[in-house]
Design a protein around this nucleic acid. Structure first.
Length: 995
RNA sequence: GGGCGGUUAGCUCAGUUGGCCAGAGCGCGUGCCUUACACGCACGAUGUCACAGGUUCAAGUCCUGUACCGCCCACCA
């Protein structure tokens, strides 16, 4: 005899038990198989090893696990690739902070490899915690394949990709303005810059003309520039004005003497300059004087202008943001004077004040106007970002790749400047062709517009934690330097053969010195040693963390090796992530997938909501409003957490989780959410209903089932099950989560538990009925567990195991047979059983339920104890009466009646309470609370009158009759008839009460 | 500045292509330890669908505008 389920639902036990079964069967592991099952692949968005997972991860991974488990049950060869991301700057930052706080040491107090070892230790700790968390959530990842973006396999892909890009001329060294954080002295990626609104000023500074001019009869001695950053004026190398400015004719070509510095700089014409217009909506036009100071070294726009006009680039700042002559202040020797020297060493904000003061004293400060504007701040140090000139590696994203023309075509994508055979084109084209789909669709727009406006991708970072750039730099010899200096970018390149290996090289100039940048292919350390022997040194910088992330879908499968796994599981199927990394990550994976593997890495992108707290704020450590998934699992169970998260997942972009503190069983007080009760309550219900079912399933024999003996309630629950299977399957196929879960919830709780189980109770004591009821019960429970399994895997697996012990073979002979299977995780997804959908039966049961509810309502209102048995009669049309009489037992059971009858001529007995529902009038005999009855009937009368009025208004409207769909009109007429009849009945009953 | 979303019951949210008297869970009220479940059962109450216009026989649903909340993107004149 099988052991009974424990009386109380204990998530912990069930979770451990299921884990054991899954591990023993190795069900999560995927191999290319000889059976040629269709593969189904999802690569996990590798969580950053910066911190343990939060509730957002729980949502993300729950959704992926639902998809994975669903497709596994559909019989696909399913791979969910797990792993973690080294998260370059983020991880380095948290480790630096920790070391500073605990040991008072800075990064620079360590040798590079020592520091990296510290970060590595952090990574090991958090990687382990993260993987534990994923397992605790029930994620059915192929743990044997667990990867890390910096492990050997991924590193190999990084090297291979970098080399390929370098060889194809897509990687170049460029001098550009980068987002510089003067506090931590590193470059930041665009996404690491946070924009904040700053209440600043526009300062209007006068720059004297070297020779006064006459404009419209007036003598003009200076031009006025407006700036928010006066301190950068030390590096001005031009003043620009719009060529359409009427004054341009006279002024362009003239020059000004830069105050303080004394540098003579030209007035140039550039379309970029906004014409002044005080009445304009445009802030810039409103504040513009028509003259723009141009500081190529300290402003991205000005850099662009400088490039167009070949302006001198003068950097006046040190890396720490102070004014300095030591960092490429090209004309320092010529211009130095006491006024400038006075500013050297000042912080940029100090210098700003000093310079403004200088202008004021000299009478050159024309005006100061307050101005609110967005300023980029470092997400690490929170100081304003300094656009800073530096040498960085870039990936050319819009450069056509000639040798891929044959595969991808050539020319621009319509309406864009994106070549089909460029990296950006690789990512954009599949979307436009409909091969790549976003769910919800609206997110495609983010992806598309980002790619259409893409700039080259800076990939070098001044960090220690990451993939070190595989380029060796060495000074060119004098002979090699004999070319002409054109500009500070890559000039030429070539191939040199070393040890029979082709090494690709570029040249570049830095501070007047020519260098070779040489990139050897991966797997040739001897060549790297050789390059070092020649005086080369590996670039100390590391790659942007997104570089390795971009390769994730195939690096994890062993690319560039043509492994069987790669062949089977690439391209994958779905990517599931949050919207914030559509551009940074999703687009780059598509780009690199196409470039490296010749195909897109997934067909569907599912973008899920962001979890906020009850007030609509982001969950964050600093606000203390986050919920740790492990706490949720501890307090409510993993299944409960998954259930709640899935039930909240709709197509909206945010979901709110009210946060509340709660004392855990172990005494800790932690954040959880009352929303988790929803899931826990459901699991508890599932547990108990299953327990009850199994108490009655002993000795179930499928052979004793006879489909001709099905009771009406059996047919009804099977019909409802059939619909639920359809609904859940369709929902999951359409990336819906809340809809299918809701469908099962309603089916299971409201149909199965509330009605079917209740009706089944007495049948279990009836030897004729028992075999039928048992088989149906076992079948419905089995199918329900399967439908629920992707959402709540632990509890369903646990119950399934018990069910297997008790009723090893389930199925309905000649209706739906089932194969036995050892574990639910690999069981077949429920097959469609649409033949069992029976509208007529559902209608009949609906009438029966209505009568039961009406009787219960009257019982409750008239204060009739639940225990007293009642006599009920019903007046209803013949067909309905017939059904009610035939199934009077069902009514008597759930409404607790001793006598029931129905006919089309039944009148209301004296002392009876009446209820009206559809075409039925329900009389509860001897319920003699006249006042309660009058109140109830009067209220219902008002309701029906209101409804009738609305219907009448429609029918009196000729436009409605003539223009609305005929079936709508017919329906409305029927309604009117029904209301009229109901009203007559109610009025009659009311009159009787008075009489 | 550009783009996107939200505003429906006290709370958290559903509401498919416009069509019965707008739904669920929680909470609330009343009554129940009915031999699976009090993390439960039964019954009930609760809405100016943000606001203003428009289209339509018919609008929570479509269009225009406004307000508020939030997110993403953007080179600080």
């Amino acid at each position: 005899m099988a052991e009974e389920l424990s009386k109380v639902y204990e998530p912990k036990n069930i979770e451990q038990q299921a884990d054991k079964i899954w591990a023993a069967g190795n069900y999560f592991h995927a191999e290319p198989d000889s059976a040629k099952r269709k593969p189904y692949t999802i690569a996990i968005p590798p969580p950053n090893v910066t911190a343990p997972l939060h509730l957002g991860h729980a949502l993300n991974n729950t959704i992926q696990d639902i998809l994975i488990r669903y497709h596994r049950m559909l019989g696909l060869n399913t791979l969910w690739m797990p792993g973690t991301d080294h998260a370059g700057i983020a991880t380095q930052t948290v480790v630096e902070k920790r070391i500073l706080a605990e040991e008072g040491k800075k990064r620079t107090d360590f040798k590079r490899d020592e520091f990296v070892a510290r970060v590595q230790a952090w990574k090991d700790e958090y990687e382990a915690r993260i993987l534990e968390q994923l397992k605790a959530m029930g994620c059915s990842c192929d743990w044997q394949r667990t990867r890390f973006t910096m492990d050997e396999i991924c590193a190999k892909a990084v090297r291979a990709t970098f080399f390929k890009l370098f060889k194809d001329g897509l990687i170049y060294r460029g001098k550009r303005l980068v987002n510089w954080d003067p506090a931590t002295q590193t470059v930041l990626a665009d996404d690491e810059v946070e924009h904040e609104t700053i209440q600043g000023n526009f300062w209007y500074l006068r720059y004297p003309l070297t020779e006064p001019v006459i404009i419209e009869g007036k003598r003009v001695e200076y031009v006025t520039v407006a700036t928010t950053r006066p301190e950068t004026m030390l590096g001005d190398t031009a003043v620009a004005m719009n060529p359409n400015d009427p004054r341009a004719k006279i002024l362009v070509g003239k020059s000004v003497r830069l105050p303080i510095v004394g540098r003579i700089i030209p007035i140039i014409a550039d379309e970029h300059v906004v014409l002044p217009n005080p009445n304009s909506e445009d802030e810039k036009a409103k504040f513009s004087t028509g003259f723009l100071k141009v500081t190529p070294a300290h402003d991205p726009d000005d850099w662009a202008i400088g490039q167009r006009h070949k302006l001198e680039v003068i950097n006046v700042m040190a890396p720490d943001g102070s004014i300095s002559d030591k960092y490429d202040w090209k004309d320092w020797e010529q211009i130095k004077n006491p006024d400038v020297e006075n500013l050297i060493g000042m912080d940029r904000f100090e210098a700003r004040e000093a310079i403004v003061e200088w202008f004021r004293v000299e009478g050159l400060l024309e005006e100061v106007r307050p101005y609110a504007h967005e300023v980029g701040h470092s997400y690490r140090s929170h100081v304003p970002i300094e656009p800073y000139l530096s040498d960085q590696w870039y990936v050319a994203v819009k450069k056509p790749i000639d040798h891929l023309e044959a595969k991808f075509g050539k020319g621009m994508i319509d309406g864009t400047d994106v070549p089909v055979n460029s990296l950006a084109g690789f990512a954009l084209k599949p979307l436009l062709d409909g091969r790549l789909k976003f769910n919800p669709e609206r997110y495609a727009k983010t992806y598309q517009s980002w790619l259409e406006n893409l700039r080259d991708w800076p990939i070098s970072r001044q960090l220690w934690w990451g993939h070190q750039i595989p380029v060796w730099k060495r000074e060119a010899t004098e002979r090699e330097t004999s070319g002409t200096l054109i500009q500070d970018t890559a000039l030429d390149g070539g191939i040199l053969t070393m040890n029979n290996v082709e090494v690709f090289s570029q040249t570049g100039w830095e501070k007047g010195q020519k260098y070779w940048f040489e990139c050897p292919p991966p797997g040739h350390p001897e060549v790297e040693r050789e390059l070092e022997y020649l005086g080369g040194e590996q670039d100390p910088d590391v790659l942007d963390t997104w570089f390795s992330s971009a390769l994730w879908p195939f690096s994890t499968l062993g690319w560039p090796d043509e492994s069987p796994a790669l062949k089977t599981f690439y391209p994958g199927d779905v990517l599931c992530t949050a919207r914030e990394i559509i551009t940074l990550w999703v687009s780059r994976m598509v780009m690199m997938g196409q470039y490296c593997c010749g195909d897109i890495p997934f067909k569907d992108v599912y973008i899920h909501a962001m979890i906020q707290d009850g007030e609509g704020r982001k969950m964050s450590k600093s606000l203390g409003n986050g919920i740790d998934p492990l706490v949720a699992i501890n307090s409510h169970g993993a299944d409960a957490m998954r259930f709640t998260l899935a039930s909240m997942t709709t197509d909206t972009q945010d979901i709110r989780m009210p946060v509340a503190q709660m004392t855990l069983p172990d005494g800790r007080v932690e954040n959880t959410s009352p929303k988790l009760d929803v899931g826990r309550n459901f699991c508890n219900k599932l547990w108990n209903a299953s327990r009850f079912a199994m108490m009655n399933l002993e000795g179930t024999n499928p052979a004793s089932f006879d489909k001709n003996k099905l009771a009406i309630t059996d047919k009804w629950i099977l019909s409802r099950l059939a619909r639920t299977i359809d609904e859940v399957t369709a929902g999951l196929d359409a990336f819906k989560y809340n809809e299918p879960l809701n469908a099962i919830y309603k089916f299971f709780w409201n149909d199965f538990c509330d009605w079917y189980l209740e009706w089944a109770k007495p049948r279990m004591a009836d030897s004729a009925q028992k075999p039928i009821a048992q088989n149906v019960l076992a079948f419905v429970l089995d199918q329900t567990l399967r439908l629920l399994h992707p959402f709540v895997p632990f509890i369903t697996e646990g119950i399934f195991q018990k069910l297997n012990e008790l009723v090893p073979t389930r199925g309905l002979k000649a209706i739906a047979e089932l194969n036995s299977v050892k574990a639910l995780v690999i069981a077949d997804w429920p097959r469609q059983i649409d033949a069992l959908i029976n509208e007529q039966i559902e209608g009949q049961i609906d009438n029966i339920q209505t009568v039961v509810r009406c009787v219960r309502d009257i019982r409750s209102r008239c204060n009739i104890p639940p225990s007293s048995k009642l006599v009920v009669s019903v007046n209803a049309p013949q067909d309905i009466s017939g059904i009610l009489n035939a199934d009077a037992g069902l009514l008597c059971q759930l409404a607790n009646l001793k006598e029931f009858s129905a006919s089309d001529s039944a009148g209301k007995p004296k002392n009876a309470a009446a209820a009206i529902a559809g075409s039925m009038q329900i009389y509860v005999h001897d319920a003699i609370d006249v006042e309660a009855e009058r109140k109830r009937l009067t209220k219902q009368k008002e309701q029906i009158e209101g409804a009738k009025k609305g219907v009448e208004a429609k029918l009196f409207n000729e436009n409605f009759i003539s223009r609305a769909k005929p079936e709508v009109v017919a329906q409305t007429k029927e309604k009117l008839a029904e209301y009229t009849e109901q009203l007559n009945a109610i009025e009659k009953h009311l009159a009787e009460l008075d009489g």
